[in-house]
Each structure stands twice: as structure tokens, then as C-alpha cells.
Design a protein around this nucleic acid. Sequence first.
DNA 1: GGGGGAAGGACCA
DNA 2: TTCCTGGTCCTTCCCCC
Length: 955
Amino acid sequence: MATGGTSSSSGEGFLSRMALNDNKAGMEGLNRDKINKIIMDSSKGSRFYENELKKEQQVNQRIERMMLQKAHITEQQLSKAQAQVEKITSDLERGRDLSRVIVHVDMDAFFAAVETRDCPDLMDKPMAVGSMSMLSTSNYHARKFGVRAAMPGFIAKKLCPNLVIVPTNFDKYRAVSAEVREVFADYDPHFLPMSLDEAYLDISDHLEQRRGWPEALRTHRLHINNTGTARVDDHGDLQETVEVEGLSPVLFENSPSSSPCLQDAAGGEVEVFGTCAEEAVREMRFRIEQKTSLTASAGIAPNMMLAKVCSDKNKPNGQYRLPSNRQAVIDFIQDLPVRKVSGIGKVTEKMLGALGITSCSHLGQEMTLLTLLFSEKSWHHFLHISMGLGSTLIERDGERKSMSTERTFGEMSALEEQFSLCRELCQDLAQDLQKEALKGKTVTLKLKMVNFEVKTRAWTLPCAVATTEELFAVAKDLLKTEIDNVSPQPLRLRLMGVRVSSFASADDKKPLQKSIVGFLHKKQTDSSSTSQISFQKPVKEHPPKPPGQTQPSACPSLVQQRQGQEGHAWVPSRGGVEVGRTGENQQSFLQRAHAQRLRLQAEREDPPEKGDWNGFETRRGPASSTTNPKGTQTHTPKNTNTSAETHISMSALTASDKMTHELTAHASTSSCCSTEPGTDSLTCPVCFREVNTTELTVFNRHVDQCLSGVTMGQNNHTDTELERGPSVCEEEVEKEITGGKREEGAMEKGRELLSRCMFDSVGLQLDSSAGDHTESTTGLLLYETSTANISLSTVGLNPVCLNTCPNGDVSIHRGTDPNTLKVSSQSDPHVRVCLLSPGGPRPMTTPKPESRDHRGPALTCPVCQETQDTNDLTLFNRHVDLCLNQEVLHELGGLTSVDRTTHTAPPAAHKEREQPLQRAPQKGKSKRRGLSPPPPSKKAKALGPAWNTIDKFFR
DNA sequence: GGGGGAAGGACCA
DNA sequence: TTCCTGGTCCTTCCCCC
């Protein structure tokens, strides 16, 4: 019964959850009160104790709620539940399978036994394996003092001052475990290892065969190795047969090897085992003992649940068989304490205890009540237990569902240390993932505070990730969010872990795109989802769904606006990333941009492809290699008329270059810039202009110059092709800007706009006096830097972290003037910022004119759907741009929620459910999965309909 | 208001 | 001075219908 606060099992006022768990072999008949007092005295006042107290109170509250619920149960509910239980019980009974012979084998005090075997001096001493902080296991001498696994060493020392604590040596245990598993495999090649020292086997098939075996196959010889330990050579030659003088150092009295032996013709001792299940298991344990000098215990039963309980029955070094008949099972279950059943721990035990349920027979008696108080899963489990049912099918080769790594340490508060550790963990995890060729979509950061409070923060990506950079990109943002949430206080950690889950399916496991070739190719063939960088006339119908999109890709509001304004309503007047373009779903664009960013990050991990030239490679049809002017190789197109694909390997590019290509590649799908198969020109992958040549040398020179222009933040084309005048793109842009009329400076506007699309660093002003620092007064930004990981500040916005910085030394922050940004890097002299918006400070709220011009209707922003108090297109466009740029910025930032209504980031301490740490933005339904911006906070919702409306765009 | 996805957390071995 | 890892289930929040 819940007592609230602390509960006592002995009247001393200690936490029951911290009391000794003597539910383990070798711990019977201990003085629990005395041991518990020592445990409490050692723990009281510690942070651990305080946390346990908190947990205990939570469990007590659960119990109180449960009891309250119980008090309100009606007779009607009970009778209905009764009928339900009876029906299910009947169904389960009909399906009871007693045909399999399942064995659970558990090595006795495994780690301790291995250490004792290797150091016989420990044989008669109480010893444990672990450290002063935590013990992994203890031997049976130590258990008599109450020392057991999962107990801190310092407390164990108080219980048993003579305790010898041996450090763990997992390599050794793994090696021994491998030997044991070799034996298991002879009885069930598909056995299921649960840990290094535990496994389930289905020996039904083995028994079937065994019945026909001659005695010789069931005969095993004893021999002694050079350490004096008896060993058997399984069915092999006896190298040295010596009389067994005694048991191995860690064998127990009822060792299978101590059974009477026969002598073979050569005078060696042999043991013959029978054909039944007990004999087969005894033989298995015998062979394990002979092979490793360690003993094992086993349980034989018709299902896994019972086998597990049975293996504990005659521990150590014993076995127990539960006959495969219903009555035997029911009798066995009757008096079995619920805590003995795998899956019922201290909390469940306590909750059941509050209902007066301590044994499995009680479970059966109270099933009706349990159906009304526990979840369906829970009471189904209870019902199975009460009937002695369990799995008869050992699930082999089950798919791994997650992989993680974590580390416990002394208090860690320094940011650098935390991020450094975070990166290390990501690195370790990436290596582990690589070993199993796994990629996962969900990255979870686990933090344990110094007060033992555990927090997990997860983020699900649109595509599976596996590399250090990819993992760190997410983990560090999650970490940063937590740090920000407690700021200015430091985040005081004692554990950090990183986990990856939601592993990719077989299809997703295909190697990540090495290039944007598919991206380009697909766009060329799928105009419906093509991003039109040119500014076309409004479309009237929704374009077809892009592949993978479940929602219509056009923004109805936007279409409506455009129609209503006869093509003049919203002209995306800024350069850079244009979202909401005709025929383009903003979300799908953002998704692709983000996905591409991840791919690019992934490619950083890969070495440059052989044959790449400056990271660019042009392929058309089957390629042959040729040497380019730089002396490296490139592929010469053999057939320019078939399967034209522009392959841009990113491996040799900097992050900034890659980002450039991410967007320019996108731009390449423009109708005005796409490569037309069948022409004698090649399309530059940098500027996406057609270069009127098929001569590789000429083309390479062009690309080279383009590339250097982009890299240097300029578009200093000097090629003749580049100086031939405005490209088709520019003309399109110009048309859109001027409405078809050529005006003074229109061409320049077009050029500027285009160059911004291509991430020209227009607007940056280099402050040479600041050394590596670049300052700019600017509006919204996207980043470009060769080292990435920039915390971007935009005017009026809080910093938004966009990417990963391997070196961690790039920073962008506001200068003394709130409208200036400072970009700096200690290691990279070429840090660059690319503008998505014209230079110059921009107001962060939509500037409203004194009074609206009444010559036309009010305009509604397609992003926030707020009616703007203006019909002035310049002002209106500025507002739309602000909204959209924030979407883009936010999207690429990935994690920081942006309040679109106020155009400011939400308060760092965005606390929900009174959690001390901010939750990672919650994902919504599949429409927003992964890439789309997280929903706004409650506050943001209260402030305006921004999120709802942007979401509706894509429905 | 219910269904269902996502995330956090508890529990267990 | 109280582990590490991986799994399942429950609760809560949120969006959508």
C-alpha cells in the first residue's frame, strides 16, 4: 500500500526502492534489516538518494491513483471485465503449446567466476567485479554479506570490509563467452544470446536427432589442462589424460563433472550422457565446465518464461526441468513470487503488492481487477504469467532497433568539454554504426544531470544518417538547446549519451547519393516538381505531386494571390533561395535543400572520388577518362545525346562550395538553364549557363573560373562565353522585375539578383583591420563557410545554428552595432557569408505605411496569411520576403523554432509541462516529418496563425 | 473528441 | 563515490479529421 514519501519495510524509514534486493541466488536468509540500514546510512543525503526519493514518491503517487481508480470500479465493469478475461483465458488455453523444449542457460556469477578462475587466490574470498562506483557482479561468498550486482563498491565495502574488488575486463569475458557459445551452437545453432553469460536454446530438434545417436557421440572424456583444471576434448583426441583430482576452483558441489565416471579402454575417464532433455542439458553444462572451468545453471521448460524461472531454481551449478504437461506448469506457477518472473521489477512488484498480489496464483485470481487498472499490454502479460504461458519461439536474428553510446563522468559544466564529449560520442557511435552498416533517422541525446535527473532529447531527420558529422550536427544542436535553457546557469552533467534509432529500411540503406546527379536528372524529367528560378506567369492549377510528397505541392494561397494580382502580386524580389515559386512546393524545396545539406555533410566523410576534377565531373553516357588542364582526370562524354547527366562530385568542395551547389543545382532545374540533350553545348554546373562548346578543355576552363569566382565570393567570369551578355536567366529575371519593359538599370538588377541566387557575396564589406573578421550590415543571411557550423545572427533574430563546424572556431555574432554581423574563424582565412537578401539593415517587422493606399485591395501574405495594411508591392514584398527568409533560415537551421508572428526566435526557456529543459520541437504528422519546421510554441500560437497557415499551404 | 504520430521518460534485464 | 546498453511500454502533447 502506498504510504507517500518514504515507505519502510522494516520501520526504519528508508526508501523501499533502495532496499536490498535479495531476489538472487546465494542471498537467502540474510539479515535484511541490518544490510538495509547500512545501505541507507551510506546513501542518505546524497544526490542519488534525493533522486531515488523523488522516484519513490512518483511510484507512490501512481499507486495512489491506482487505488483511487480501484475504488470507483463498478460491479458492471467487473462483470464485463470478467467475461473478457474468461474469453481470452479460454483462447490462450486452446493455444497452449507444450511441444517445445526450451532451455535457459545462465553462467554462475560469470565475471566473478572468470576472475576467480584466473586468480585462484580469490576462491575463498568475498570478491566482486567492478569499481568503487559500481559492481557488475559478486561471488557467492560476497553475497552472504549482501553484496550483489548493481551495488556501488563503496557501499559493498561497508557491508563487507574484506571484499576484494576486481576491475572488469570485458575482453576476457567476451572471449570466454565465445567459448561457451560454441557449445551452445552444438545444441541449437540458432540459440539466442541475451548477454555474455545468458542464452535461450530450443533443443527440440537436437533431442530429436539425439535419440538416434550411438553412445560414442554422447560420451565425453575428461582431461586436465596445464593449470590443473579438468578439461574435455569434445569428441576429439585426448592429448593428456590425467586423473581428476578435484573440482576446478569455481565449481560447485553438484557439478556435472562430479558425477560417476567410467574408464575407457585407454584408461581415461569418460562420462556417458543419455538422450533425454535433462541429460542433454547436463552434457552441455559439463562441456562448458570442461571447456572453460566455469559452471552454468540451466532451466528446461516448455517456454522461455518458465525456462528462465527454472534456471534460477537450482543455482548455482544446477538445473531444473519442468515437465511439459499443463498440470505441472500450473502447479509450478502457483506459489511462484511475481518478482521471480522476468519483466516484473521493483515498481511493478510494488504496484501489484499494493493490490495484495505477491504470487502468480494471486495474479490469476485478480485478473479481472487488473484488466481495469492496467493497460492492455500489461494485463495481457500478467495473464500469460498466471497461466504459465510464454514464448515458444525463440526469435532469432531480430533486427536491431537502436544503437547508442553513453559515458558517465564526474561533474562536467564547461561548454567546450560538453561539446567535445558530444562529438566524441558521435564519433564512437558513427564507428559502431559503420560496423553494422546502419543508418538511422532519429538521433537522441541523453543527459543525466548531477542530481541524477535524466533527460532525453530526440530529433528525427528526413533521411538516415550515420557519420560523425551528421550525428554531431543534430546532437550538438540538441545539446545547445539544453544549455541555452538553463543559461546563464551551466548545464551540470554527469552523463551524456547519443543514440540512433529508426534505422533505415533496406531501400534506405542504399549508399547515400554521392552526387547530385540524380537530383539534376530527376528534375530534368520531372518538371512538375522543378524549381523554377525564372519567374513565370502564375499557374492556375496545382502542379502534380512531386515524388514522395503526399500533399499537393502548390500553395493555394499563393496561387490565388497571383491570380488575383494578375502576375504582379508577389514578385520574389530578393535573390537567393526563392521559396513558394511557381510549381514549387516550399516544403518540398526546403526538404530537398535540407536533405541535400545532409548528403553534403555525408560526403565530407568520403574521400574525393578518383578522377574528380575540382570536385566536378561531367558525364554523358558511358564515360571515358581524360586529363584536364589541372592534370587530374575527368570523364569525357562519349555521347552527348543520351542520358545526359551532369555529375557534380562534392567530395572536393568545401562546405560553402557544396552549399552553393546545393542551391545552384536546384536552380539548374530551371527551364531557362537546364541542359538540353541533343545540343552541342555543355551546361556549367556552377553558373548553369550553357557553354557553347563540347571541347572539354574550354569547358573545364570555364568551370574552373566559375568555381573560383564562387569560392571567392565573386562572379568574375572572364571567359568569352561569360561576357557575351546576360543569360536567359537574367533576361527572365529582368522581365519579371520590369514587367517586360526594359528600364534603366534593369539588366543590372537582373544580374544582381541572379548573382545572389548563386551566392555571390554581394553586400559584404571586408574590414581589413579586423584581420580574419568580416563584417556586414545586412538583412537575412544564409551561410557559406568552408568550415561550416555557424551560429548565424540575423538582424532582430536570435542566433540560429545552421550547420556543423568540425573545428568549432567559426562564429558569427552581432557587432557593437546591432545591425552588423561579425564572422570570424581562427583557422580559416576564407570564411564567407552569402547573402540571400540585399545588403543594408532591414526592419524586422513589416513596415506599415501611414495609411494604406486605397487604389487596390489589401494584400494577404501567403506565408503568414496576415492581411497587410498596404497594397504597395515593395512594402508587401518585403514583408513576404521576411516571412519566407525566416522559413528558409529556420528550415536550414533545423532546430530553432522561429516565431513567425513576431519575427523573433522564441524565448530560450520555452518550458512546457514545467520541464526544466526545453523539449526538442515536437514533430507533427507526416506532412511535417523531419524537414518541415516544428510547430510554434503555445505562445506563438496565441500570437498568431502563422504555423497553421504555412502548414495549410501544402495540404 | 478520438485517432495516431512523436517525444520523453520509466522500467527492466 | 550509484554502470552501460538496448528494448518495451506508458504518458503527454499535438495535429488532423
